[in-house]
Every structure is written in C-alpha cells, then in structure tokens.
Simulated assay, not measured.
Amino acid sequence: MASTAVAVQRYASVRLAVQRYASPLLATVVAAAVWASATGDIGVRSPLPGVVPLVLAVASGWAAGVVRTRRWPLFLVAAVGWLVLAAAAAGVVASYQAGLRMRGRRLAGYLAGVAVVLAGGVLVGLAVGDPRRITTATPANVLLLAACLVGLPLVLGLWVRARRDTLAALRDRARRLEREREAHADRVRAEERTRIAREMHDVVAHRVSLMVVHAGALEVTAADPATVEAAALIRATGRQALTDLREVLGVLRQEGPAGSPERGIEAVDELIAESRTAGLRVRRQDEGAPTAVPETLGRTAYRVVREALTNVRKHAADADTVVCLRYLPDGLEVVVRNGPSDGGSTLPGSGQGLLGLRERVELLGGRLESTAVDGGFLVRALLPLKGAA
C-alpha cells in the first residue's frame, strides 16, 4: 500500500510538471525546428534574408505555445511556414491539434485547407526549382509528406481524443453506479426499518395490549381500593406506551410527518406527576428567570428528564429525586439527581438510553454528564440556545 501511494504521488507530481512546462517546451521545439528547416539542417535551405526565417520561427513558437487557448494562429503560421520555408514543424502540431479538438465539419474544413496548402506548396516548388521542387513538388514526395506530416499526427490526435472520451465515459459510469449503489443502500435501509417496525408491532404491541386488558379486568374485579388504583395506573401507562409505540412505528416506516408532535419542556410537570403516581418521591425546583426556549431545545430537555426519571424508577425507586431546570443567559441546564437507594428489586435495562440521549444533546452543541454522586446518581445536560436556533 505504501509503495502504491508513493507511485501515485510521483505520477501526480510528474503530471503536474508536464502540464506546467508543456507549453513553453513545445514552443521552443517548434521554433527551433522551423529555424533548422530554414537553415537547411533538417530541410531545404531558404534563400530568403535571415530575418524572414527568424520571424517565422518566433511566430511559430508563439502560436504553438498558445494553442490550448487559440488554434487559428498555429494554423496560419503552419500554412505560411510551409509555403515560404517548406517548414513542417508547425504543421505537424496543427494536425495533431485538429485531430484532438475538431469534429465534423470543422475537421473536414481543416483537411480541405491542408489540401490547398499542399497544392500551393507544389506550385511554389515548381516555381523555385531544385531542390525545393524535388522536396515538395514531386508526386511521391507530396504523398509521403501528406502521410507523415499530416496523416500520422491527425490519427494520433484522433486516438488520444477517443481515449479521453472513453475514460470520461468510464468515470461517468462509475459515478452513476456509485449513485445507484447509494440509492440501493437507502432502499435496503428503508426496507429494514419497515421490517423492524412490523416486528415491534407484532411483539411489543401485542404484549402491551394484553397487559392493558388484564389491568382493565383487574380494575373492574378487584375489591381493594389500592389494587384498583394500581390497576388503573398500569392500564393508563400501557395505553400511553401504545401511543408512543405508534409514533415510533410511524417514524420507522417513514410515512411522512410522524403522528402528533413530541412534547416539550411544558410537559415536565406531567412527567413528574406520573412518577409521583408510580411511587417516586420527586420534587421540582427552577433556578433563574424562566424564559421561552426553542422547540428543539424544549423537546431535548423533556427527553432528558424522562430518561432520567425512567432510570430512577428502574434502579432507585425509593430514593429522593430532584428535577432542576436552571435558566441561563445562553442556554438551559437540566439536572436530575436522586439520592442513595436502599436497594431492592430493579428492572432490567438495555443501557442504551443515556447513549442515545448523549447523541441528541451533542447534536445541539451541548454536553451530557451522567455519574454516581454521594451514593446516588446525577444526570446533567447543558443545552445552549445557539445550538437549537
């Protein structure tokens, strides 16, 4: 893996260097080739004054250097260079660029222009005479020059363009497949959520319904007032559990807006009353000037109190408990603290309630603390106003 990463990094650095220096390097090579052709080093020596080949060499180099943004200067100097000096360097680059960037009618127009320039080169060769006539005016040489200086660069440009188009199509296909995979994963998750909802309905709702029915029967048949009151509480709690379960199932099934809106901070007293009815010794105290809080923050505060009181009922039902809402200038602090418990039976728990609650609090930019204190337990949540805005 390390060697592959090093190879990729080297390739990227080489590619960056090529992209940075390709244009000036190409301009230098083309200008030097045109000058060498005019002086007879790689072509027919020109009888024209030296300033003419120099100007054409500089113009050809400049046109090759700016070909990425403007093509017509290169095509122009390629035609002039061939007719005046029989210099082919600019023409080779022009043919490659035509194959790489032109399509349809533009490419056909370029080939027609090449034919006109080659025909003009034949006429110039015949007029100038040997050795220019032998090089550019004999049929065999004209065909060879057309194949080597026009055909091969043109085919190379067409191949590079086809390869780029193929790679672009493959990348687009890969992106499309990735999007399809993500969509498939979303469908699978939705199906799994629906399956979970059905299982919860089949198992939990059935058991809770039986509990409500039996509690109702006990409420009717029992003679002891305390038993009747406990049965009524069990029946009411069971019905509330069924209501909450339906809301959860609505969320899991993603059936648009989920049921009735979740209760907020105004329902904390109702939670405390329910806990007192269930036998807990709970009292509430507020600190600071009560102010209106955002709905999101209020719902989170309600969940903190609900989860904390649920844990007290499970693990310390005989302990004194205090629910404190502390209104701060920049937020709300929720504290639920219970004292030491004498022990006794406890209800089972999954241990996931506080973890989920911590995630909810942290989504608002707050902090949740849950720790044992003086033989009891403390749950403290700091909810900032800015996180709920």
Rank of each mutant, 00 (worst) to 15 (best):
R187T: 13
M211F: 14
T221Q: 08
R10P: 00
R176E: 15
T136R: 09
F75P: 01
R239F: 05
A87D: 01
Q19L: 14
L26P: 00
L280N: 01
A17L: 12
A87P: 01
A79R: 06
R380L: 12
R103Y: 02
Q254A: 15
T166Q: 13
P294R: 06
E178D: 11
G157F: 11
R103W: 02
V44E: 02
V44R: 01
P153A: 02
D130K: 06
M1N: 05
A217I: 12
P257Y: 11
G259A: 09
E180I: 00
A147M: 10
T371K: 15
V204M: 09
G279K: 12
V304T: 03
V312C: 03
D172G: 13
L149A: 12
R313G: 03
V14Y: 09
D130C: 00
E255K: 12
S341M: 11
R303V: 12
Y11N: 08
D224L: 11
E369M: 04
R198W: 13
G344W: 10
N338L: 08
W72F: 09
A222S: 07
L382W: 12
S13K: 02
V160E: 09
E182V: 15
G288M: 13
T4G: 08
L107Q: 02
A90L: 07
D41W: 08
L364H: 02
E287R: 15
R276H: 06
V268A: 04
D320Y: 04
S46H: 01
R106K: 11
P290E: 08
R163W: 01
G65M: 09
E247C: 04
M211Q: 10
L156F: 13
G99R: 00
V67L: 08
L167D: 08
A215Q: 00
A232G: 10
L354E: 11
Y21A: 04
W35A: 12
R132D: 08
L158Y: 01
R106P: 00
T346H: 11
D224P: 06
G375S: 05
R187I: 05
G298K: 03
I42T: 08
A372W: 11
A232M: 02
L385Q: 06
L245Q: 14
W159A: 12
V208F: 03
A241P: 04
S23K: 03
G104N: 03
A22W: 08
P294M: 01
V160I: 03
L149P: 00
R360G: 02
P294A: 06
S350F: 06
P261H: 13
L143Y: 05
W82H: 08
V51I: 15
A183T: 11
E359S: 14
L280P: 04
V114I: 13
T346L: 10
V373M: 10
V114D: 05
T291M: 02
A22L: 14
R173A: 12
A316M: 07
R15L: 13
R71M: 14
E219Q: 15
F377M: 09
A292W: 00
